Amino acid sequence: MTVRSPAALDLTGLRTLPSQVWGGIRLVPLVREEPLTDLRLHPRFFGDGAGPVLGHVAVAPRTAYTAYIPHAFVATWTRDGSPAAAYGTQLSTAGPAGPPEHTVRLHLHRRLARREDRDRLRFLPLHLALEGYLALHFGGPSVMWEEWSRRAAAKGLSPRTEEAYTGAEVAGLADALRVFEIHPGQCGVLLHTGDTLAAAFVVPHPEDYRLLHPTLVQDLFGELVHHHALFAGPLPDFRARIPGPGIGSLADLRAAAQEEERRWARFHDATMAAGLLGPAYTWQRVYRMGRFTLSRFLPAFVPKEENHIGETITDERGRTAYLKTFRLSETQVRRGHLLDRLAAQDWHLGATAAAMGLREGELGLRLEHAGFGALLRQDVLDRYRKENRRRAERS
């Protein structure tokens, strides 16, 4: 795997259309003027749809990734630019009846991305991105300063866990996807909950999107997305208003309508989606696929701002053929921020605290609140707590 320099997402070739609203859910269609024909995606479902599927993937020696993994995507491509066909789609027709709720089936995977043929790759959508976030500085302290515990030396950040919600638990999402109008040429969607950008999903071809559109309800979403959908009231619908003066023909009306569409797209991309499209990300290449590259990316972990992780398939010019993102909660952003700052200072607590404008004890307690307290020696944590109480009493 190789890491590229920070760069922003490139959605060249995708056009934003006016949104559709269902309760607290806003769905913004993305349309390709020229669909990609030499790369195709299709789903591969695990189990019979009768119960939850727990996936277990060995990602490194003595290291495994375990998560709810209902399906995989299979990418098929051609090397000479000729059209590729979606290959081997498996549909699940099972109903809701199934095993008891406490029963969870385990599905073993050899890799997160595994080549199955010369021009075919099976990968686990979104889990490439999530594993990249969980693996962030997973080995723990690079230098064993005296504050770190024996566990930090022996296990690092193992086990590392995060919580997420399935799309079925996001209020209104299933209904929105069911009544959503799929446009001709549509190859993606930007999903907002409570007018907060929750996720982006892009595929190479309109036929792929029609096939994969229902899988959004099986995706994973962060805590912030779930809460916004649950507590948000009905969202306003942005309706175009074309003034009567100056409209003297159908051509004038068509031009005015097209200008309103362009105005909506400029507003959405510059304002509502700026938190995803504006920042630069750190990229990690996962697999080469002819002229395409499968990669995952991490944000800069800036607290109190939008932070998205995700995975892409890009062509030789860096343009996005496939995209799936996950918005991190503020707690998850703080964890990533702390780990990045520690790694930048070789895990020296004093130097990291000084770089962040904190006292060493404050940094230690932040680590504990973020769930990393077990990495510190117990006597060190007790000292930090005692110092904090004394300062609180004096103030």
Results as ranks from 00 to 15, higher is better:
M1L: 12
A8M: 06
A8Q: 11
L17G: 06
Q20G: 10
W22P: 01
I25A: 03
L27R: 07
V28M: 08
V31I: 15
V31Q: 05
P35A: 09
P35K: 05
L36C: 15
L36Y: 03
L41S: 02
R44V: 01
R44E: 02
F46W: 13
P52S: 14
L54N: 09
H56V: 12
V57T: 06
T63N: 13
Y68L: 07
I69C: 00
P70S: 10
T76V: 13
T76N: 04
W77D: 01
T78H: 01
P83G: 06
A86R: 01
G88C: 03
L91D: 01
S92E: 00
T93S: 07
G95Q: 06
P96I: 02
P99R: 15
E101W: 03
H102L: 11
T103E: 12
L106K: 09
H107C: 06
R110N: 06
R111G: 02
L112V: 05
R114Q: 11
E116I: 07
R118W: 08
L121Q: 00
L121V: 09
L136R: 03
F138D: 03
M144D: 14
E146T: 15
W148V: 03
A154R: 15
K155P: 05
P159T: 09
T161R: 15
E162C: 08
T166A: 11
A168T: 08
G172N: 08
G172H: 04
G172L: 08
L173S: 01
L173P: 00
A174P: 08
D175I: 08
A176D: 05
L177R: 01
F180P: 07
E181C: 12
I182M: 02
H183Q: 15
Q186S: 06
C187A: 15
V203C: 09
V203I: 04
H205D: 07
L211S: 06
Q218R: 14
D219E: 12
H226I: 05
F231V: 13
A232I: 02
G233N: 13
P234Q: 10
L235D: 06
D237E: 15
R241M: 14
I242N: 10
I242K: 08
I242H: 09
G246L: 09
L250F: 11
L250R: 09
A251S: 12
A251F: 07
A255C: 09
A256F: 14
A257W: 12
A257Q: 14
H268Y: 15
D269S: 13
A270W: 07
T271K: 10
A273K: 00
A273I: 03
L276Q: 02
P279Y: 05
W283R: 00
R285N: 11
F292N: 04
T293W: 01
L294R: 00
S295Q: 13
R296I: 00
F297G: 00
A300V: 03
E306K: 03
G310D: 04
R317Q: 14
R317M: 10
G318D: 04
S329V: 05
T331W: 06
T331C: 08
D340P: 03
A343T: 07
A353S: 10
A354F: 04
M356R: 04
L358I: 04
R359H: 13
R359S: 11
R359Y: 05
G361D: 14
G361H: 02
E362I: 02
L365S: 06
R366T: 03
L367Y: 03
L367P: 01
L367I: 02
D379K: 11
V380M: 03
Y384C: 08
E387G: 07
E387W: 07
R391Y: 06
